[in-house]
Design a protein around this nucleic acid. Sequence first.
DNA 1: GTCTATAGAGTGATAGAC
DNA 2: GTCTATCACTCTATAGAC
Lengths: 177, 177
Amino acid sequence: MIADVFRQHGYAGTTLSIITARTGMGKGSLYHFFPGGKAEMGDAVLAHIGRWFEERVFAPLDAADDPLAAIHTMLDSVDTYFQSGQRVCLVGLMALDASRDAFAVAIAGYFSRWHQALSLALSRAGVSEADADLRSHEMLAAIQGGLVLARALDQPSIFAETLSRLRANLTLLSVQF
Amino acid sequence: MIADVFRQHGYAGTTLSIITARTGMGKGSLYHFFPGGKAEMGDAVLAHIGRWFEERVFAPLDAADDPLAAIHTMLDSVDTYFQSGQRVCLVGLMALDASRDAFAVAIAGYFSRWHQALSLALSRAGVSEADADLRSHEMLAAIQGGLVLARALDQPSIFAETLSRLRANLTLLSVQF
DNA sequence: GTCTATAGAGTGATAGAC
DNA sequence: GTCTATCACTCTATAGAC
């Protein structure tokens, strides 16, 4: 809920009054749960996102018997999470402006954990380690860029386009090995 | 100069005091040049970026004799503009948060103009129109996503990686036709 | 004297903290 | 709800160019 406010307005653009209006919580309750104020709310939101991805994306990738199928499942989860391109990635958004500095550990952690899990899966699917590293970066960048473009042009279908291209590349991969 | 402040802090995170501190201009001068205040500064910055890309990227793409070479030149310009991944794309940043709504025309215009010029060049390089459309989206998303990832992980080299991958794909294209 | 550019005190509104 | 700091912004005063 608070996460949606941050996603919509960014960290700097999120004000406590927006949060109180959207959540119905008074400022008192807000500071009861988050004594550290806005910064602690940012930490909590990033931690919550991190837990969601750990459970639904990173861990399944690590545990997969069939790594290629697991990457397809990852793309399903990504499509669900980002609501087919209608929802923005808060971590990516926070990476771009000055709020990154205050949340650098959580932001870098999110992407490096994802990169680690994805490149491991790719390499277990038969890709060389060096190639898996590059392809993992490529896929993560495609997802982030797809979200940016979809929102900039107000065409969520561009994100769907991105995901099907990634799926097609995976299929090429499975033919190759 | 003002553009750098917006790039660093985002639109919402940019305060007039940061601008006066960084530019040395007093509020008087600022409001002399931008009677519309912060919103007009945002417009001016986006217009300035749009002009830079029109001159250095879009028009050359349109006018190119050798479309494939022109796309390589585009990637040079992109590398220069984004300082090899150390500079963020303000238009992409503004696309992600609520500031998009106030600047939607400029933001969508930037990306659709780029997309138009790039897909035209691709199709003149021999790619089918439908394919050029998709590949153009793919390249723009890769650039945006590369910038996000480079900054999130604080590894500008990821952006260099992105650009060389795009170049390699172009080379595959020139072999194909 | 007029004009453009500048500085900065001062406005009400609203921020985040408590 | 109350606090102080800071927000975007206004306004007056002043500088030098011509």
